[in-house]
Simulated assay, not measured.
Amino acid sequence: MPLERPPYFGLDANVPFPQSAALSERVLVAEEAGFDLFSLMDHPYAGDHHEAYAALGFALGRTRRISGYVGVTNLPLRPAPVLARTVATLSALSGGRFVLGLGSGGIWKRIAAFGAQTLAPKDAVSAFEEAIVLIRLLTGGGAGPVDFDGRFYRVSGVLPAPVPTPPIWTGSNGPRALAITGRLADGWIPSFGADWLAESYRAARPRIDRAARQAGRDPAEVISYFNFGGVLTDRDVLSPRDPEGRWTGGSVRQWVEELTGAVLEHGAGGFNTHVVDASGDDGADVVRRFAAEVVPAVRAAVAAG
């Protein structure tokens, strides 16, 4: 079933090729434990990792409830018209259990080495905006054929897929991309693991909110979904953040307090988590413990206000 209401809890499901069986196991454990989402990275030039969309489709086919997303899709290597067909297919076959994470491209040296044309930053952002517009036109079962004549994408007389457009969450960073997110997207994944206390987040989020309001939208329609990891300990730690202010983890009580505050005080819409135990293990036991002891406590505290 599609995502319901935030806050959402996701699990990082990335594993290298030598651990292929662990990917399926990790997603199944996440579903059984009650996570809302699993995530995969899109670095097709990395030969030791699975191709994200093939792995996502495989994992969605093994599950029944949990949603999946690629965080975030490497747009320069996945032209928007074909990507629109891909996401419509995944959404339809999974019963709407798909979120489109979308980025304009980041590691350009490796993207170019994989055969894509290198774009100047301003052009990459323009292509990113066109892609969001075109993907929305090519999904949702519009009234008739789509004609689109952009700088980077052109289609003529193409019928849209009769499938609702999935939520679109961006990995935007610069001012223009943030404004595009506010106008056109449903969610934002702050870059470089920034959380709600980071100065980069505090500077960036108002740009999204301002652009959303200028477009006649409620800024709350664009959720902030954080990549957020750390250690889950048996007892309170002296400080759950390092000297630079980055979260490092703590006890169940400290996790619950932190995540509840993120939602109620800072408007967090969800968390893509990578949690380890004191030994550094991120396997099924710590996933189940986090889901059983942290997730429901945060949801209850948020519901209570």
Rank of each mutant, 00 (worst) to 15 (best):
Y69R: 11
R241I: 07
L93P: 09
A211F: 08
F271T: 06
F128A: 02
V15F: 05
T170L: 07
A291F: 13
P44V: 06
T273H: 09
A185H: 00
A30D: 02
V70Y: 10
S239Q: 08
R288M: 13
A304S: 15
G269W: 05
S39R: 09
D236S: 05
N74V: 06
G174Y: 00
H266T: 03
R154F: 00
A297G: 08
D234M: 08
L238A: 14
G10H: 03
Y45E: 07
L134P: 00
V146N: 02
G249S: 11
L197M: 10
W196C: 06
G269R: 02
W255G: 11
S94D: 07
I135C: 04
V87N: 03
T86C: 15
D281E: 14
A303I: 10
I111M: 03
S239A: 15
R26E: 09
G101C: 08
L159W: 06
M41K: 11
R289N: 11
G106C: 04
S91Y: 01
T248M: 14
R202F: 11
V294Y: 06
T86Y: 12
T181R: 00
L264H: 00
E25H: 12
Y225F: 15
R288H: 12
P18D: 09
R5F: 06
A55M: 06
V298A: 06
T260Y: 14
V294N: 07
G187R: 00
D12F: 05
A185V: 02
S20P: 07
L11G: 09
R26M: 11
